[in-house]
Design a protein around this nucleic acid. Structure first.
Lengths: 204, 204
DNA sequence: ATATTTATTTACCAATTGGTATTTAATTAT
DNA sequence: ATAATTAAATACCAATTGGTAAATAAATAT
C-alpha cells in the first residue's frame, strides 16, 4: 500500500533514512549533542561519513532533524495533554505521562530536550539555545491552557497560570534528571502524586 | 596573620592555587566537564598546560578538586538546611535558598552537580557517575532528616520521607535547568512557594 | 550500448583534543 | 659561587574531532 514511486535515477540508497534518523536520535538523546561523535553515529547507523553528510547535511543539521522527529514522535503526548477536560487533568496527565515516558526502557532515559545540550562548549551554543526555546514553548503551552482554565472558571481567580506552568515544567525537567540518574518509574509517579497535592481541592 | 612559612625551596609558584581552582570551577560549572577544554582552562587561569598539570594533575583530577571546592563552598548551605527546626522549615529553606543560589549573578547559573555531566560521551562517564552519587547523597540527607521528623511527630505517619526527599530533589534539579535556561530568581521563588503547598497544614 | 545520475567507498584534510619532554628561569641550601 | 630544587615556557605528541575530494559502483534514461 505504501506508494513506492521509486523511479529515482541514480544508485539506490542502501539504508533506510527513517531508521537511520531514529538511530541518530537515540545517540543524541543519550549522549547529548557534543557527546555524540561522528564516529559513534556512523558506526551505529552502519553507514560512512560521506553517506551521512549526503543524506542529512552536517552534524548540526542531523541533530535538528533528529530533534524534529523527537518532538513530533515520542514527545507528541505533551500536545495531547492540553486537551484534557480540566486543568487538574492536564497537570495529572502531564506528570504521569512524563514519569512513564522518561523511564521507558524502550528508549534512552530522560528527555532529549532537557539534556541534549544543557551545559556545553561553544560549539553547541546554538543547539543549546534551540533547546531552551523548545522548553519555553512547551511551558507556554501549559500556561495558555491554564489561562483558558481560569476563564472557564476551572481555576480560582488568584492562581497564576504562568507560575503553575513553570511549576510543572520544573518538575518535568527535574524528573528528567532523576530518570537519567536511575530513578524508577514508580518513584517518579510518587513524585507526581505528591506534586499534584498543591491543587486546590486536591489537598490531603 | 596568614602563616606564610614559605621556605619552599625551588622556584616559587607565580599563581595562587586557590584562585586558579576557583576559576577552573566556574568554567566546569558553566561548560560541564566535556565542554570545558584545556585550552579555555589554561587561558582563563592564565597559566600554561604543564603548570596546570603539575599543580592539579590531569583534567579529571582538576574537575574532582573543583567539585570538592564546590560542594564544600557554594553548596554547603544544603547541609545547614537540615538543621532547621521543623521538616517544613527544612523544605522551605532548601527550596528558597536553592532558588536564590541557582540564579545568583555572582556565579554561573544552575547547579554544577546537576549539569556537570548529565549526558555525555564515554570520556565523561566516570564523572557522570560521581555526580549522580552526589545527587543521591544529598537526597538521602533530606530523606533521613524527614525520617527523623516523623519520629519527632513533626510529620504525619502516612508520609514517606523518601518520596518527600525525592520530590524536593526533583524540584531542585528542575530549578537548576530552569536557571540555566534563563529563569529569574522571583520565578523560581514562586515555584518554591507553590511546591510548599503540598505540606500538610500549609494547604491553600 | 552509452551517458547520466546518484550513492558508496577509500583516503585524506586541517583543527582541536588531552597530555608531555625538554629547556629555561627563579628560588633556597650548602 | 655552586648545587639542588622547583616552576614556567616552548615545543612537541598521538589520537580524535568534524568534514571532504576523488574514485568507484549501481541504478535509469536515451
Amino acid at each position: 500500500m505504501t506508494t513506492e514511486l521509486k523511479k529515482s535515477r541514480g544508485r539506490p540508497r542502501v539504508f533506510d533514512m527513517d531508521e537511520a534518523l531514529d538511530k541518530a536520535l537515540k545517540i543524541f538523546w543519550e549522549r547529548g549533542y557534543e557527546g555524540a561523535s561522528l564516529a559513534e553515529l556512523t558506526e551505529t547507523l552502519g553507514i560512512n561519513k560521506p553517506s551521512l553528510y549526503a543524506a542529512f547535511g552536517n552534524k548540526e543539521e542531523l541533530f535538528h532533524k533528529a530533534l524534529l522527529k523527537y518532538a513530533t514522535g515520542p514527545v507528541a503526548f505533551v500536545k495531547d495533554v492540553i486537551n484534557e477536560p480540566t486543568a487538574y487533568k492536564v497537570a495529572e496527565a502531564f506528570l504521569v505521562k512524563a514519569a512513564e515516558f522518561l523511564t521507558d526502557p524502550q528508549h534512552p532515559k530522560g528527555c532529549m530536550i532537557v539534556q541534549g545540550a544543557l551545559s556545553s562548549g561553544e560549539s553547541a551554543e546554538l543547539i543549546r539555545d534551540v533547546l531552551i526555546k523548545y522548553r519555553v514553548s512547551y511551558e507556554n503551552l501549559l500556561a495558555e491552557r491554564f489561562a483558558k482554565a481560569k476563564v472557564d472558571g476551572d481555576l480560582p481567580d488568584d492562581t497564576s497560570p504562568k507560575n503553575l506552568a513553570k511549576y510543572l515544567a520544573t518538575l518535568h525537567q527535574g524528573m528528567s534528571v532523576q530518570a537519567t540518574s536511575g530513578a524508577a518509574k514508580d518513584e517518579l509517579l510518587e513524585v507526581a502524586k505528591l506534586a499534584l497535592k498543591i491543587w486546590p481541592g486536591n489537598n490531603q
